[in-house]
C-alpha cells in the first residue's frame, strides 16, 4: 500500500481534497514550497504537473502555467532534483501528472524509478494508451509502487470503465464532463445522473472527480457522489498573484471549513 491507498482506505467520512499545480510555476523553485504550504493548509493529496509544450487536454490557465514553467527552465530532470528532499518536508501522497512525450524521452522505466526514489506515489499520464501501459510498462509501475491513474469521461463505455477499474491501483479520475481543464462546473441534472451511474457501478477503486471544480459548492456536490475531488486551474490561477503564499490557507479553507 502506498500513501494514496492508505489515504483512501482510512478516509472515513472525510471529503478528500486534491490540488493540482504546475511544477516550476510561478517560479522555478516554488514547487516544494507550495507542496509544504498546501499540506499545512489541510489538503489531502497533491498532483504536481510536469510541463509540456503541447498540452492538448488543458485550457488556457494550465497552458499558461506550463509555458511559464518551461520558460523558467523546468524539465523532468530539474523536477526530480527539486523533489530529492521532498519527503523531509512533505508527508502527503503525491502524484506526478503530465503528457507522455517527456516521459518517453526520460525513459519510462527510469521515470518510474526516479518517482520511487523521491517518494512519489502515483502517476497520471492522460495520453499514455491503456494498451501500452498493459503491454509494456505495468511491471515498471508496479515494481516501484506507483499507482497509475486512468481517466473516465461521461462518454466512456461501461465495459471500458470496468477494464479501467481492473487496471487501477489508486483511484479513478472521473472527469466532470468531456472538457479541457479550467471550465467552471455548473452541476447539472445530467451530470448528477452520470455521477450516480458511476457510483452505482460499485467499482473496487475510489473515485475522485476533477475538471471544473473551483468552488466550495462544486466541491461539495462532487464529493456527495465521490470519495474526493480535484481542484486544478482555480488554484493555478491563484498562483499568478504575487502574494499567493499568504492566500493559500484562505483558498484551501473555502473547501475545508
Amino acid at each position: 500500500m502506498n500513501r494514496i491507498n492508505k489515504l483512501f482506505a482510512n478516509k472515513g467520512d472525510r471529503r478528500i481534497l486534491s490540488i493540482y499545480y504546475t511544477a516550476g510555476y510561478p517560479t522555478l523553485n516554488s514547487t516544494v514550497d507550495i507542496a509544504e504550504a498546501l499540506e499545512k493548509a489541510g489538503v489531502d493529496f497533491l498532483e504536481i504537473g510536469f510541463p509540456y509544450s503541447d498540452p492538448v487536454a488543458d485550457g488556457p490557465i494550465i497552458q499558461h502555467s506550463s509555458e511559464e514553467a518551461l520558460h523558467n527552465g523546468m524539465t523532468l530532470h530539474v523536477l526530480f532534483e527539486q523533489l530529492k528532499h521532498l519527503r523531509k518536508r512533505v508527508a502527503l501522497p503525491i502524484l506526478l501528472m503530465g503528457y507522455v512525450n517527456p516521459v518517453l524521452q526520460y525513459g519510462v522505466e527510469r521515470f518510474c524509478k526516479s518517482c520511487k526514489e523521491v517518494g512519489v506515489d502515483g502517476v497520471i499520464v492522460p495520453d499514455l494508451p491503456m494498451y501500452e501501459y498493459e503491454d509494456l510498462y505495468r511491471p515498471a509501475f508496479e515494481e516501484n509502487g506507483l499507482s497509475n491513474i486512468f481517466l473516465v469521461t461521461p462518454q466512456t463505455s461501461e465495459a471500458r470503465i470496468r477494464k479501467i477499474d481492473g487496471l487501477s491501483t489508486g483511484f479513478i479520475y472521473l472527469l466532470s464532463s468531456s472538457a479541457t481543464t479550467g471550465k467552471n462546473l455548473a452541476v447539472s441534472e445530467n451530470m448528477e445522473a452520470y455521477f450516480s451511474r458511476i457510483r452505482d457501478m460499485e467499482l473496487q477503486n475510489p473515485i475522485a472527480i476533477g475538471f471544473g471544480i473551483s468552488t466550495r459548492d462544486t466541491f461539495i456536490r462532487a464529493t456527495d457522489y465521490a470519495d474526493g475531488a480535484i481542484v486544478g486551474s482555480a488554484f493555478v490561477q491563484l498562483l499568478a498573484n504575487p502574494d499567493y503564499k499568504e492566500k493559500i490557507p484562505e483558498f484551501i479553507g473555502q473547501f475545508k471549513p
Binding site: Y52, S53, D54, L70, H77, N101, V103, L104, Q105, D127
Partner: peptide, 21 residues
C-alpha cells in the same frame, strides 16, 4: 528529430532532450 509522440501518434519529431516540441 527523434522518436516521440505528438498529436496522438508515435513518430519522429523535432524536440528538446526533455521532450518539448
Amino acid at each position: 528529430g527523434k522518436e516521440g509522440v505528438l498529436h496522438g501518434s508515435r513518430s519522429i519529431l523535432m524536440q528538446t532532450d526533455d521532450g518539448q516540441v
